[in-house]
Simulated scan of single mutants.
Amino acid sequence: SDVLSVRSPFGAPPRVPITLPLPPDFQIKSQQSEVTRILDGKNIKYELVDISQDNALREEMRAKAGNPKAIPPQIVNGDHYCGDYELFVEAVEQNTLQEFLKLA
């Protein structure tokens, strides 16, 4: 026959790694959980604001972030915009969370 069959030594077909992007809402929940876990661990008080059901709150978050497409989590201290999830994680890694949160 002219058909070439490729098999691994164990008889199973070779596997190609695939990437499955997480749905946006799963990624958001995961990032929110990470932020709250870190804040809880450092005994930093915070308020969670659910923007999912309120367009006005969503627009306010985006205005504070200065990005019309910003998605949560966005961190704000009063009227002071601190940053997004990536900047939060960077601040944690660099041990500058107090400055990032405008608490220092």
Rank of each mutant, 00 (worst) to 15 (best):
V3S: 09
L4A: 11
L4N: 11
S5K: 13
S5L: 13
V6H: 09
R7A: 10
P9F: 12
P9E: 11
P9L: 14
F10D: 15
F10T: 13
P13A: 14
P14I: 13
P14F: 15
V16T: 15
P17M: 12
L22Y: 04
P23A: 08
P24K: 08
D25T: 09
D25H: 13
F26S: 03
Q27T: 10
Q27F: 06
Q27S: 08
I28W: 00
I28C: 06
K29H: 10
K29E: 07
K29W: 08
S30T: 13
S33Y: 10
S33K: 14
S33P: 06
S33I: 05
V35G: 07
T36L: 12
R37V: 07
L39Q: 03
D40K: 14
D40E: 06
K42L: 14
K42P: 05
N43K: 14
N43D: 11
K45G: 09
L48Y: 09
L48P: 04
L48T: 02
V49R: 15
V49T: 07
D50H: 10
S52P: 02
S52A: 10
Q53K: 11
D54H: 00
N55E: 03
N55Q: 06
L57Y: 04
R58H: 09
M61H: 05
A63R: 13
K64S: 08
A65P: 05
G66N: 05
G66W: 12
N67C: 14
N67R: 15
P68V: 09
K69A: 07
A70Y: 12
I71Q: 14
P73E: 01
G78V: 02
G78P: 01
D79G: 04
D79Y: 03
D79R: 12
H80N: 08
C82I: 03
Y85S: 02
Y85C: 03
E86M: 01
E86S: 06
F88K: 01
V89Y: 03
E90F: 04
E90L: 00
V92N: 05
V92K: 01
N95C: 07
N95K: 15
T96Q: 14
Q98G: 10
Q98E: 15
E99T: 15
F100N: 02
A104N: 11
